[in-house]
Design a protein around this nucleic acid. Structure first.
Length: 563
RNA sequence: UGGGGCGUAGCCAAGUGGUAAGGCACCGGAUUUUGAUUCCGGCAUUCCCAGGUUCGAACCCUGGCGCCCCAGCCA
């Protein structure tokens, strides 16, 4: 839980508290995170992970990791590896409790035989199209399948032959015999087994029939003695089926399914289907593109596990459809990085500043703190000389009164260095570009206020030109320009992709210590934001940093307001 | 009335009959060699609407309205 935050209270904890009070489940609390290994995890999954593992932690229970691998057509080990890596990176540990729904294929099969023997399941030989027609509609009841009354013996024989591979895909399915007139479509004799002649990534060619989600999930939960099976709202309609299956069978226990609202965040999309589309359509560089709301994307962007956990704690758990402000996520990273990231100076858009009265060839070394509030982070040395780079934005030819950086005749402090005064500047008259700024420095102002008591409010960052390391910095902005890119179903959400979501700056000037940064290490570049050494592309001879998030920028706000 | 769910501030969200927590955002103000951080202060006379019950209602009742989900041999 976040420092200072109130004790989490939500309807799921209330339910668990009540169950505990009633003595249910012998006081155990066991949850599970059940991803299908068919894609990468995104921040919506992080909410579920934090919820399930968080509950297990707080109630001294367990949280299982179980791959819901019942569809061999879509699943792969590649995804299993990335999912496990993501959950661990987020800081959670399933210990011994690592499972696969495919571990239960044999038991699931035996339970299905049991259902058939009880006359509660039958082999249906309708085609997919016919079955759809028989299902009825939202307002009209369905019709019984002509195969609904096959004898137990025939069903047993047919189901075994399905298992033995005697039939083609699509020719038969096993259905639960419930109620074709149910107003809940999930109860209209749902399919529980289908034929798929495809190798499964774990069981190979051992099976040609595969159980469906509704049938598999509840039994898997029961076999693992899960107490609270937490899923998202769209499964609420499936709960009667979840309960029905367990009620028919001799299973170890009957877990309680609880549904909560999935996470939505503005200016992005959070559905597996759309994320795949962005990757395959080349709109981003991959699943780990720092603009992606995937766990690997956030990681590469520079987000910390703690910041994502805090975010998930802060958004809460409820049943209301909601859309969380991206600003909250940004707040959470800044909060974490502010205390954990060492400071450094880097100039993104360099402008040369020459100190006319500083001795040519002289070099000083300033020993400066790595963190202004945390002495334990130590100090580092930064070289200073006659020519330095400053940010283009920190000089204005004709600055407004509220701008307290550099301008003709104005004074500013070079962070951790001297106060300099602008005496001249060089401008390309054809392009209007400022080529160079000339200053004089006040030698008495190193680590001290001016003798005469004059106030110099502005402080700017800089890097010694002769010692700077050139590097690449990637600036990221929101992926979509629209708050709710999928809100209007008649317009393709990709229409709202932000064309400026990535800006690559190839000629940044960084303080020398940054060349020694470890890939994936994070820094605050003073006055700019938090930056992370790219895990793939960073090289000491060519540093590459990704901007995680900017610092809060009050000036930008004032400036915008005044225009 | 096909069924299931949900409506508390700009965005999240507690609250479960005793007089609206908290966070983000926003607006002040203090400190600051990062226009950062930190710190203080402000920010719902009212809980989708309308009636009703009650000494007392966001919570209970009735009737509306609005939004989301469901017709895969996906999960």
């Amino acid at each position: 839980m976040a420092e200072g935050a109130t004790k989490p209270s939500n309807f799921i904890r209330t339910i668990i508290d009540e169950d505990l009070k009633k003595g249910k489940n012998d006081g155990r609390v066991v949850t599970r995170f059940p991803p299908e290994p068919n894609g990468y995890l995104h921040i919506g999954h992080a909410k579920s992970i934090c919820l399930n593992f968080g509950l297990a932690r707080d109630y001294k229970g367990k949280c299982h990791l179980r791959f819901d691998d019942t569809n061999p057509c879509k699943e792969d080990v590649e995804y299993e590896d990335s999912i496990q890596g993501d959950v661990k990176w987020l800081g959670f540990d399933w210990g011994e409790n690592f499972f696969h729904a495919s571990d239960y294929f044999l038991q699931l099969y035996e339970y299905a035989v049991d259902l058939i023997k009880q006359g509660k399941a039958y082999v249906c030989s309708l085609s997919a199209d016919e079955m759809r027609a028989y299902r009825g509609t939202l307002k009209e009841p369905g019709k019984n399948s002509p195969y609904r009354d096959r004898s137990v013996e025939e069903n047993l024989d047919l189901f075994e032959r399905m298992k033995n591979g005697e039939f083609e895909e699509g020719s038969h399915v096993l259905r639960a015999k419930i109620d074709m007139a149910s107003p809940n479509l999930n109860m209209r004799d749902p399919v529980i087994y289908r034929i798929r002649k495809e190798a499964h990534h774990r069981t190979g060619n051992q099976w040609v029939i595969y159980p469906m989600y509704d049938y598999t999930h509840c039994i898997s939960d029961a076999l693992e003695r899960i107490t609270h099976s937490i899923c998202t709202l769209e499964f609420e309609d499936h709960r009667p089926l979840y309960d029905w299956v367990l009620d028919q069978l001799d299973v170890p226990c009957h877990p309680r399914q609880i549904e909560f609202a999935r996470l939505n965040i503005n200016y992005t999309v959070l559905s597996k289907r759309r994320l795949i589309e962005l990757v395959e359509g080349g709109h981003v560089s991959g699943w780990d593109d720092p603009r992606m709301p995937t766990i690997v994307g956030f990681r590469r962007r520079g987000y910390t596990p703690a910041s994502i956990r805090n975010f998930c704690d802060r958004v809460g758990v409820a049943k209301k459809d909601s859309c969380v402000d991206m600003g909250l996520l940004e707040f959470c990273v800044r909060e974490d990085l502010d205390r954990s990231a060492p400071r450094a100076m880097g100039v993104l858009q360099p402008l040369k500043l020459v100190i006319d009265n500083y001795p040519e060839g002289q070099v000083e070394e300033f020993e400066v703190p790595c963190h202004p509030q945390d002495p334990a982070m130590g100090t580092r040395k930064i070289p200073f000389s006659r020519e330095v780079y400053i940010e283009q934005d920190d000089f204005m030819e004709d600055p407004p009164k509220k701008f307290f950086r550099l301008g003709p005749g104005r004074e500013v402090r070079l962070r951790y260095g001297y106060i300099v005064k602008c005496v001249d500047y060089v401008k390309d008259e054809t392009t209007g570009e400022i080529k160079e700024v000339h200053c004089t420095y006040d030698p008495d102002t190193l680590g001290a206020a001016p003798q005469d008591g004059r106030k110099v409010k502005g402080i700017i960052h800089w890097v010694s030109a002769a010692h700077a390391v050139a590097g690449e910095v990637r600036l990221y902005d929101r992926l979509f320009v629209k708050e709710d890119p999928t809100g209007d179903k008649s317009v393709d959400y990709k229409t709202f992709l932000n064309p400026d979501s990535l800006q690559v700056l190839e000629n940044c000037q960084l303080e020398p210590s940054l060349a020694g940064a470890a890939p994936e290490s994070r820094f605050q570049f003073e006055r700019l934001g938090y930056f992370c050494a790219d895990i793939k592309d960073f090289k000491p001879e060519r540093p590459v940093f990704n901007r995680t998030v900017t610092l809060r920028d009050t000036w930008a706000k004032i400036d915008k307001k005044d225009r």
